[in-house]
């Protein structure tokens, strides 16, 4: 899936929406107001800056939003001189700057708002994103991508005894597609006749690698190489790297945040699970560089040595 070809150029756009983050396209020059500011003041802000929504803040914290609809209502209802505090929307749908662009696009489809405030990990307002920002961001990146695409069209190398090999690219926080890579690997190896017990070990290892890439890495690839006597899984990412490998291999130890944990991930069993189902397990990591995890699962029923 990472090997681009002209035949799959639409997938380049999809890749892009997954690889780009909200922070890559959002507007960071924020026009904000405070709770005590009048709606009239905010109307002026909108007019001067040609914008249709103004976040209301307390310091760096987002407390509300006034949209152009609110202003129209204020003009209509005769309360345009009032402080915005009593009229602002408080129940806000926000995006996190680290989320993939694809999620932002789905929010626009889902909620029909003109813009979303963007918060960072510390819940501080860091930007605002409109559908226009997303389109512009995509077009700029697409241009760059097209240039790189041409360079990537070189033919692939053949590998000796490999029966089947495939590489998937995984993106940070892409829960939409989580499980797709390991699901595909399981299905295709089942078709190759791998016995159910071995298949389950491959499924466990590939799923945990996939989730690690999605939850913890900045993005990377999962490669499966299926040979007659063994299956090799390799997860390679571009960072952030693991500070303490010994801890990372300890059951129950996890660096996942609350949001990740609320989804049922971050149990601290990913790497231990992979190690347990592997005949050979290898991990190397450098902070700031990235991590490589390799798992070899032999096929006893096909004569692979255990």
């Amino acid at each position: 899936m990472t090997n681009f070809s002209l035949d799959s150029s639409p997938s380049v756009v999809l890749e892009l929406t997954l690889r780009l983050k909200i922070r890559d396209v959002m507007t960071t020059q924020l026009i904000t107001a405070e709770k005590k500011d009048s709606l009239r003041h905010i109307q002026q802000l909108m007019k001067v800056n040609r914008i249709t929504g103004v976040p209301i803040v307390e310091g760096k914290r987002l407390v509300g939003l006034i949209s152009v609809d609110d202003i129209i209502q204020a003009l209509d209802g005769g309360f345009i001189e009032e402080a915005c505090e009593g009229r602002m929307s408080r129940q806000l749908i926000v995006l996190e700057d680290d989320m993939p662009l694809s999620l932002g696009i789905s929010y626009f489809e889902k909620y029909h708002f003109g813009r979303f405030p963007v918060l960072n990990k510390d819940s501080e307002l860091v930007g605002i994103v409109s559908s226009r920002d997303i389109l512009t961001g995509l077009l700029v990146e697409m241009n760059k991508e097209m240039e790189q695409l041409e360079e990537k069209l070189s033919p692939q190398k053949e590998v000796g005894t490999t029966i089947y090999s495939r590489e998937f690219s995984l993106h940070k926080f892409d829960f939409e597609h989580a499980g797709t890579a390991s699901g595909t690997i399981k299905m295709e190896l089942k078709e190759k006749g791998l016995d159910p017990k071995t298949l389950r070990r491959v499924a466990v290892a590939s799923y945990e690698m996939e989730m690690n890439l999605i939850v913890h890495s900045l993005g990377g690839t999962l490669k499966v190489t299926h040979m007659p006597r063994q299956t090799v899984l390799e997860a390679r990412d571009v960072g952030p790297g693991i500070e303490d490998l010994e801890k990372a291999l300890t059951e129950g130890w996890s660096t996942a945040n609350d949001w990740i944990r609320s989804l049922g991930f971050g149990a601290g069993m990913g790497l231990p699970n992979i190690k347990r189902v592997s005949d050979d397990f290898h991990i190397e990591s450098e902070v700031g560089k990235g991590t490589l995890v390799r798992s070899v699962i032999r096929h006893p029923e096909l004569g692979g040595e255990v």
Binding site: A178, G179, L263, F265
Partner: peptide, 13 residues
């Protein structure tokens, strides 16, 4: 109750 639960159930058989 989400999609990933199904992925796990399926992969773990």
């Amino acid at each position: 109750a989400h999609k990933n639960t199904v992925a796990v159930a399926s992969l773990a058989g």
